[in-house]
Measured scan of single mutants.
Amino acid sequence: MQGVVKVNSALNMRSGPGSNYGVIGTLRNNDKVEIIKEVDGWYEIRFNGKVGYASKSYITIVN
């Protein structure tokens, strides 16, 4: 499943599904990501070869 990031500035990509996990990357508005699965309001995603987590509130699913 594919998604597009929708933010005003930047979205942190984290090592786990929560804001208490470390930041491993930064996503920008309109970045395209691969959604692997949903975990407690977060998406596990793949972006630029990295796998991490981002809040699903800021990612819109596209077909």
Rank of each mutant, 00 (worst) to 15 (best):
I24F: 02
G41F: 08
N29K: 07
I35M: 04
D40P: 07
N48D: 12
S55D: 15
G49D: 14
Y43K: 01
A54T: 13
V33I: 09
T60D: 15
V33M: 05
K37T: 14
I59H: 00
V7N: 09
G18P: 00
V23L: 06
G16C: 03
G16F: 02
V5Q: 01
G49C: 06
G18F: 01
A54L: 09
E44W: 06
K56D: 06
G25F: 07
E34Q: 04
V4A: 07
S15L: 10
E44Q: 08
I45N: 00
I59N: 01
V7A: 11
N29F: 10
T60P: 05
N12P: 14
T60Y: 12
V5G: 05
R14D: 01
K56V: 12
N48L: 11
Y58E: 13
L11H: 08
Y43S: 01
N8M: 11
G3Q: 03
Y53V: 01
G18R: 02
V62T: 12
R14A: 06
M1I: 13
E38L: 07
N48R: 08
L11M: 11
G49A: 08
A54P: 00
D31M: 06
K50A: 13
V7P: 04
N29H: 13
G16L: 03
L27Y: 01
S57C: 07
E38Y: 06
K50E: 13
E34T: 04
N8K: 11
K32N: 14
V51Q: 10
K50V: 15
Y58A: 14
G41C: 05
N29A: 08
N12F: 11
V7W: 03
I45F: 06
Y43N: 01
I36A: 05
F47V: 13
K6G: 08
K32S: 12
I35N: 00
I35K: 01
N63T: 15
R14P: 01
D40V: 08
V5N: 01
G22M: 10
S15M: 09
N29V: 05
N8P: 11
I59F: 05
Y53L: 01
Y43I: 04
K50Q: 14
I61C: 04
G16H: 03
G52T: 02
F47M: 08
S55H: 12
R14H: 15
S15P: 01
Y58H: 15
N8D: 15
L27I: 08
N63C: 06
Y58N: 14
G41D: 12
T26H: 14
N8G: 15
N8T: 14
N29P: 08
S19T: 11
G3C: 03
S15G: 11
G3E: 02
G3H: 03
M1H: 14
S57H: 13
P17Y: 01
V39S: 07
F47P: 00
N48F: 11
G52P: 00
N20D: 15
G49M: 08
G22T: 14
N29G: 09
K6H: 11
A54H: 01
Y21P: 01
I24G: 02
Y21V: 02
Y53R: 00
R14G: 02
I36V: 10
W42D: 02
V51C: 05
M1W: 11
K6P: 02
I24D: 03
L27C: 04
V51T: 14
Y21T: 06
I24Q: 04
N20W: 13
